[in-house]
Amino acid sequence: MRVELDEPKCVASGQCVLTAPEVFDQRDEDGIAFVTDEEPAPDSLDAVREAVAICPAAAIRLTER
């Protein structure tokens, strides 16, 4: 599974970082999120799915790969 982030949609709420800190981080300057692990290990996927669901900008996608 591959994690994709639609950066222009991100509103810098940081919800993904709180939910899946091993896969997401925020830029220091503006808080926009970025993916630190694009193909996370299976035991991180639940947290990533949770992050997809609660992202207030619907900016995260998890795709089959």
């Binding site: 810098a12 925020q26 220091d28 808080g31």
Partner: peptide, 9 residues
Amino acid sequence: VGVTPKALR
């Protein structure tokens, strides 16, 4: 206002 989100954690 105008503060980086990370600093608010």
